[in-house]
Structure formats: structure tokens, C-alpha cells
């Protein structure tokens, strides 16, 4: 019944202000990743067809759409995590700074080091907080002079340092869900990637933890290129510079469902003046 501002409202307010004060998004992005006519197949089934979009440098790009529209599938193909699924196959080209990341000879491990990923469910390793962060630099053979300082920097960037600085040697499983997810972001940052992919990073978090992550994303945008898949359209509207709307269409000939990209534009355009009636329907149905 009370209308007193909650923590949630306070953070949301701050976020909206921050969002409003950010610089104008350019008309065309400076592409870090170019997705050209990409289809993803699982064995013979075409899960997503003919997607073309550019992921802009130091921008947040949101992929939205109903379940089964293939947005997560596209996201997982951006750092070759799809390689790990048996029978998965990508056609078309995905270029990273102009180089096709699927061309023969490219090491998928090198791709994943530069293009990190944060998952739907927080997945810290069963190790200490410190070792979770130090894991990436160690396995990738990064030259780190002072690991303690490196860990501190990653945790600070992920806005987690103050909360965990006294328990670095404790298990990461002692943290709350939201803290675990920020730890996973810090873990990704620690290998100094270029791009961070986030697959519904707030799906298992409460509203306050969700806003903390969004706030963090807004800060990280200055340092990294971020691509986020989300079910939550307010989230896309709050954080994303550009938004791609996907949907699932049924092929009239085969009767199979395929995901496809409907519209890709600046977030303001997608939410205020969508060009495609399907986008408008989705947005107004869930948002208005």
C-alpha cells in the first residue's frame, strides 16, 4: 500500500538517468562482429535462418523475441560455443574484426578467449572466489605480473570487490545468486575479452539483483562490447543501444519452425517506431 521508494526504485531511477545521459547511438555501428546470412542447423533441422546483423563496438546489443526464436542459438554461435553441441552446424559467415571465425585453422578456444560468455544460470566453479577469477588468466597463459591485483581489478569492475574482499579464499558457492552472477562476469572480464555475450544473465535472479547486473552492464559498455539475450523487454529498453527482434516462423512448405530476424535497429527506434508490424505487435502486446 505504501508508495515509499524502495531500493529497487532507487536503482532503477539511477539507471534510467544514466541511460538518458549516455551519448547518442550512431546511425550505423562500427562492427566488431558481422553476422552475414547465418543459419544454424542441428543435424538437418534449420533452427535459425539467414540472420544478418552487425554488433557495434562498445555498444550493448540486445537480442529479444519469443521462446524458440533462435536468439540464444545465434548468441552461442558468436563465440563458437555451438561447436560443443553434436550435430550443430553454422552456414554463412560470422566475422570478428573482418576475419571469418569459422574459417578452417581458426582455433575456437582463441575465439572464446576474446569473446567471453555469461550464462543463464550462474555457474561459478567449485573453487574459492579468488581461484574462480584467476582460473581464466591461468589456463589461457596470460602474462599477469601481479595476480592479486589482477583479481582485484576484475572484481572491482564487476562491482563485487567490496562485498567479497574479506572472503576471497572462501568457496564461491557461499555467495548469493546475484553475487555469483557478478562473479561470473568478473571471471569473464579477467581474461580481458573484447566482447561479452550474456545469455539471459538475469533469468534466475530477483529484481534487485537484476538491476545491479543492468547497472554493471551500463558501466562495462565503455570497456567492452556486450551482446545480451533477454526475455525481459524492459531490460532491453533500459540497457541496450541496439535491439534485434527475432521470431519463430513456420515454413509453409515443410511445416517446420525456424527462427528468423525480423528487425534490427537502434533500441529507441525498435521500441518507439518499429518498422515491422510483428515487432510492434510483440512490443505492444508485452510492453504497452
Amino acid at each position: 500500500m505504501t508508495t515509499e521508494p524502495t531500493v529497487h526504485d532507487a536503482i532503477e531511477m539511477e539507471l534510467v538517468q544514466k541511460h538518458a545521459s549516455r551519448p547518442e547511438v550512431p546511425e550505423t555501428p562500427t562492427p566488431v562482429i558481422q553476422v552475414e546470412d547465418v543459419s544454424v542447423f542441428y543435424d538437418d533441422y534449420q533452427a535459425v535462418r539467414d540472420v544478418t546483423l552487425d554488433i557495434g563496438h562498445n555498444e550493448i546489443t540486445a537480442l529479444i523475441g519469443p521462446s524458440g526464436c533462435g536468439k540464444s542459438t545465434i548468441l552461442r554461435s558468436l563465440n563458437r560455443m555451438n561447436d560443443l553441441i553434436r550435430g550443430a552446424r553454422v552456414t554463412g559467415a560470422i566475422r570478428y574484426w573482418g576475419q571469418d571465425m569459422y574459417e578452417p585453422g581458426v582455433d575456437p578456444i582463441e575465439v572464446r578467449r576474446r569473446i567471453g560468455m555469461v550464462f543463464q544460470k550462474p555457474n561459478p566453479f567449485p573453487k574459492s572466489i579468488y581461484d574462480n577469477i584467476a582460473y581464466g588468466p591461468r589456463v589461457t597463459g596470460m602474462k599477469v605480473d601481479d595476480m592479486d591485483a589482477h583479481v582485484e581489478r576484475a572484481l572491482t569492475r564487476a562491482a563485487l570487490w567490496d562485498e567479497v574482499k574479506d572472503k576471497l579464499k572462501q568457496s564461491a558457492y557461499g555467495l548469493s545468486g546475484g553475487q555469483q552472477q557478478r562473479l561470473c562476469i568478473a571471471r569473464t572480464i579477467a581474461v580481458e575479452p573484447d566482447v561479452i555475450l550474456m545469455d539471459e544473465p538475469c533469468a534466475s535472479l530477483d529484481p534487485i539483483a537484476t538491476l545491479r547486473i543492468e547497472e554493471l552492464m551500463a558501466e562495462l559498455r565503455d570497456l567492452y562490447t556486450i551482446v545480451i539475450v533477454t526475455h525481459n523487454m524492459q531490460q532491453a529498453a533500459r540497457v541496450a543501444d541496439r535491439t534485434a527482434f527475432f521470431t519463430a516462423a513456420i515454413d509453409p512448405q515443410t511445416g517446420e519452425r525456424h527462427g528468423e530476424l525480423v528487425e534490427f535497429d537502434k533500441t529507441t527506434t525498435i521500441f518507439e517506431r518499429p518498422a515491422d508490424p510483428r515487432t510492434e505487435g510483440y512490443i505492444s502486446g508485452r510492453f504497452g
Binding site: R112, G116, N123, P126, R187, A190
Partner: peptide, 27 residues
């Protein structure tokens, strides 16, 4: 051992053998 732990390790650029040796086997 949950799939997500392996994914988390691979996503920071560990090879699959490193993932097996440092994450999956200890778990």
C-alpha cells in the same frame, strides 16, 4: 558434473583438456 561448469570454463578460453583436468575431474 553439470554441463554448465564445463561451459563456464570453455567460455573463458580454456581448452577441453584443461577443462577436464582442472574443472570436471576435481568436481
Amino acid at each position: 558434473v553439470p554441463r554448465e561448469l564445463r561451459d563456464g570454463s570453455l567460455a573463458v578460453g580454456a581448452s577441453d583438456l584443461q577443462t577436464t583436468w582442472r574443472i570436471t575431474l576435481p568436481a
